[in-house]
């Protein structure tokens, strides 16, 4: 798989923010000092109108990353052609410095659950999704990043840990890794592992982006489960894990995600500043 350069723009150093329609006017009038923006690709699959009007203007001043949620790369079936073509059109139109998708599935026999569903981590599914990713990269003519997802169950049939699976997918398909530090933390709590085991098992070279977001704890009488809701500030434990991640992966572009109950833009800026601060800390001793 040839790794084509995304474009001539330098990789942004400071933290990026997920761009939401609620903030279009704020961003255009204030030109806030964030490093870059990321959008959900599908929000711009429409042909025209306001979404493109705003994104075109914002793209003039900021690097952009396209983050897809609907390609269903882990499905038994091949990715939907029309979906893939729309993504390709969007890449041509906006020249993003990064394009990413998820290590998950969301459809079966053309029926969509529109969620990021977990795969059994087996040799057979590993080979399958790696092939799907490689073919998508061929169609798009560029490398994509694949993100580890939050999950709420594990399959009895899984034979390898998630971190080994993620690493192997990158090796076999030639994709990069979008490491979602919040998802590592959420899964460590949901499935009972040490998040540092995950972090330290992921090779440094493929990691080209980091995601940070807030989760919600759902409590039941027989236990609790962490849900990746993207509706609040990043948790303290996740900031700590991020500090470890930066120590390992260095200056990887980092994104603050917030998708529901979207707060005023300043709250996102404040979260971005926290990430900037952590990245600029001198290398303190972290075990």
């Amino acid at each position: 798989m040839a790794r084509l350069p995304s474009n001539a723009e330098p990789t942004p150093v400071s933290t990026g923010v997920g761009l939401r329609a609620e903030h279009y006017d704020d961003v255009l009038s204030r030109r806030p000092g964030v490093g870059w923006f990321e959008v959900h690709s599908e929000n711009y699959f429409g042909a025209g109108g306001k979404p493109h009007h705003y994104l075109t203007q914002i793209r003039r001043d900021y690097p952009l990353s396209l983050h897809g949620v609907g390609l269903s790369l882990g499905a038994a079936e091949a990715p939907n052609k029309s979906h893939l073509n729309k993504l390709k059109g969007l890449i041509d139109r906006y020249q993003p410095f990064l394009v990413s998708e998820h290590l998950s599935w969301s459809s079966v026999n053309g029926r969509y659950l529109n969620d990021l569903l977990p795969l059994p981590y087996t040799e057979a599914t590993l080979e399958h999704i790696s092939g799907q990713i490689a073919r998508v990269q061929d169609v798009l003519g560029r490398q994509i990043l694949i993100e580890n997802v939050s999950s709420y169950l594990e399959y009895e049939t899984s034979t390898v840990p998630e971190w080994e699976y993620l690493t192997a997918v990158a090796e076999r398909s030639g994709c990069g890794i979008l490491l979602d530090v919040n998802n590592i933390y959420v899964n460590s709590r949901n499935h009972g592992f040490d998040p540092l085991t995950f972090l330290n098992a992921v090779p440094i070279a493929p990691v080209q982006e980091i995601h940070l977001a807030g989760f919600t704890v759902n409590r039941f009488d027989d236990g609790e489960i962490l849900i990746d809701t993207h509706n609040q500030r990043v948790a303290d434990d996740v900031w700590e894990l991020y500090r470890r991640a930066i120590h390992r992966f260095r200056a990887v572009p980092t994104l603050i995600e917030w998708d529901t109950d979207v707060p005023p833009f300043d709250v996102l800026l404040d979260e971005a500043r926290k990430a900037d601060t952590i990245r600029s800390e001198k290398r303190v001793r972290v075990a």
Partner: peptide, 16 residues
């Protein structure tokens, strides 16, 4: 097919 591991399988599927 789901590991119980604390919460039951049905509870975990219910999240999805």
């Amino acid at each position: 097919t789901v590991r119980a591991n604390g919460l039951t399988g049905p509870r975990r599927l219910q999240v999805y």
